[in-house]
Design a binder for these strands. Structure first.
Lengths: 299, 299
DNA sequence: CCAAAACCATAGGTGCGCGCTATGGCCGCC
DNA sequence: GGCGGCCATAGCGCGCACCTATGGTTTTGG
């Protein structure tokens, strides 16, 4: 069964006239007649009664809805592809590690939504390895993380900004009101390990060097869970500057803690990107992040 | 967009491997590659990422459901046509005038249902002209009526049986208990005219000749309505023998009423009939109706 | 680390099939 | 009876889909 046969069939079913149907399809009547005959041979029965006026046979009536569906699905595919190409419609698939706050992107996404109408976002979350896999498999076009496996040489990396880590404690905590905190103050505290953060291992190394126990602590796997534990007063945490935490928690710098992470934008080298992804990438790379972060912190 | 392109696309989407997909489609890999390229050109973008392993692009993911639907509709059409041809499935479209009781057919239809499983019946009702039109337009394959317009020479006619008319009255009616009724007894009665019966006009002529008023009577358009009026005691009626009426009504022969009608089976000459219709036609024409009607009357 | 295999792209040759024109038969209409 | 609309058939040409052969690139395995 070929598509043109289906098209001809539908034209004849509409006009009930082979000659006019052929005209509508921009072919001659013999061509159309032969195509219908082939279709009839494949389906094993006549589709039309050759009378004046012509009519659908029982078999023809049965075939009509299915063949119409077949043709319209193909037409729908062409139409959707056209919308897709013209940028009318599209999806931005972006993978983030759990330690990247979505708020960082929201101003940019707001802007991009005005450029591309009917744009869909697909936010994918995972740890560092998972984000890398999503990029590899093409499930995501862009990735944002502090650090991904550098073994894969097709990974394009653009640093966005570098940030410090801060201590976060519950407002009732004994450290909450303390003006200055240094590493020694943390030694007796229950630390919540942000195991999902790709920078976690390195941070733990720094803390361990200062005699802080990081090997016997709760394991959690999302920023949301971390915040709820902090609010419940179960432990303290060290989080990056751009992690948004509720007003009820207190955040403070820690003297002597020399830990920083760089947040990167990732793409796949040599892979064609959609217009939307390219636009987002240009925006993110062209932003003065120092200024941007100060402004958003003020807000 | 051609069907084989769609088929190849779905094979590649399934296997994510051009070579194996080509093998599944029983073509060589270059043929498949070229078909995919053509499809990509028509849709205006790549459908697959040519990497190891391959993957669907965003456009490819969007196209997949529609193209799958397209292909499955075509496959469904083939499958349905196959079922249809093998007699597994089918429809018998049969047109009846309102004056033909469906009970006449039920024993035959019971039998035919055992021969053709998944058979659907479509009973179409109308007056004589409408039944003729349904046959002409091919909406019905067979027609059953007492008399159709003989002007259309393509009408095949096979007489089935001939029957008398009888008087039907409510059990409370003054004529109900009368042993013998003749035409004079009807003169003062309110007659219900079965305007939907193709034999009605001729019957009226007979009655009018005996001085019975048939020109000022209620007009009704279905046997069901007629029965309800009779049960309500609103008038009397003259109906053919094979019209089934409830036990609550009384039916009697009328002396001197010389009216009979012949019920015919109709088909369209020179038009191919389905296996089901041919079978029904053979059964109806091969029945000894005199015997059949006696038996069903006894039952 | 190199050889082998797997995979996709390209080139060039060949045959089938789709579309064309021309024509004939059939039916309905003026 | 002549005429026009409609569908079927015959014959022809060209495009297209398929094939084989081969090259380039990536992955695998020893």
């Amino acid at each position: 069964m070929e598509m043109h046969q289906v098209r001809y069939f539908l034209a004849v079913a509409r006009t009930l006239n082979f000659t006019r149907a052929a005209d509508e399809c921009n072919v001659t009547q013999p061509s159309l007649t032969r195509a219908i005959k082939q279709l009839e041979a494949e389906l094993g029965g006549d589709l039309f009664r050759r009378e004046r006026p012509a009519g659908l046979t029982e078999l023809g009536q049965r075939m009509h809805p299915l063949l119409k569906q077949c043709y319209e699905a193909a037409a729908g595919a062409r139409s959707l592809a056209s919308s897709f190409k013209s940028g009318e419609i599209g999806a931005l698939r972006i993978a983030l590690t759990h330690s990247i706050d979505l708020c960082l992107l929201i101003p940019f996404l707001d802007q991009i939504k005005r450029q591309f109408n009917r744009l869909e976002f697909r936010f994918l979350r995972g740890n560092g390895r998972e984000v890398g896999d999503m990029l590899k498999k093409g499930e995501a076009e862009l990735g944002i993380a502090a650090e991904l496996d550098p073994n894969w040489e097709r990974l394009d990396t653009w640093p966005l900004f570098t940030e410090d880590f801060q201590l976060v404690v519950n407002a009732d905590h004994r450290l909450a009101d303390q003006d200055s905190i240094d590493l020694d103050d943390l030694r007796s505290e229950q630390l919540l390990s942000r195991g999902y953060c790709e920078y976690g291992p390195r941070l733990n190394t720094v803390l361990r060097e200062h005699g802080i126990d990081v090997d016997h602590c709760h394991e959690i796997s999302s920023e949301r869970d971390l915040i709820e534990l902090l609010e419940a007063g179960i432990g303290i945490a060290v989080v990056p500057d751009t992690s948004r935490i509720p007003q009820t928690l207190k955040r403070t710098s820690v003297e002597g803690l020399d830990a920083r992470r760089t947040v990167n934008l990732y793409g796949v080298a040599g892979r064609e990107r959609t217009a939307v992804a390219s636009a987002v990438m240009r925006m993110l790379r062209g932003t003065d992040w120092r200024q941007f972060l100060e402004k958003s912190r003020a807000a």
